[in-house]
């Protein structure tokens, strides 16, 4: 159990909530619909998503050890399977389920 007294625990949790919500709400509070959004921010709104998805894929894989253990091979093979499945069938759920199944088989039976 936490050594922290209960009020301090509540403060820690409240700080986490405040940090999360401020980052989620801030853009909407700064760029309200009353003023026109600056063109540069509109451009960012269009250009950011693709960059974010690239970033999130890397974020998901950030703890993969390339130099030790299984050298990231299960992840690489499962990602390749996911991509190929998606290029072939273009069925999002199928690609995700297939890639995950490949990964589970690899880490449970092979590596």
């Amino acid at each position: 159990m936490s050594p922290m007294p209960f009020p301090q625990q509540v403060i820690v949790i409240l700080l986490c909530i405040a940090a999360t919500m401020s980052t989620r709400f801030l853009p909407f509070l700064i760029f309200t619909s009353k003023k026109p959004t600056p063109p540069f921010v509109q451009y960012l709104g269009r250009a950011l998503p693709s960059a974010i998805f690239g970033m999130l894929v890397v974020y998901c894989l950030r703890n993969v050890e390339v130099l030790s253990g299984s050298h990231g091979l299960p992840e690489a093979i499962a990602l390749a399977a996911t991509f190929l499945l998606h290029l072939w069938k273009r069925q999002m759920l199928l690609s995700i389920a297939g890639g995950t199944a490949v990964y589970m088989l690899l880490v449970q039976l092979v590596f």
Binding site: S50, A51, M55, L79, T82, I96, G99, T100, M104
Partner: peptide
């Protein structure tokens, strides 16, 4: 290994965006 489902989903979303977009600068930058 079940947690890979989140990685697979984001990878598919990334690939889908890549296939639909007219330029790949943002994706490559990200």
């Amino acid at each position: 290994g079940l947690d890979f489902v989140m990685t697979a989903m984001l990878a598919v979303i990334f690939l889908d965006a890549w296939l639909k977009e007219k330029q790949h600068w943002s994706s490559v930058i990200g």
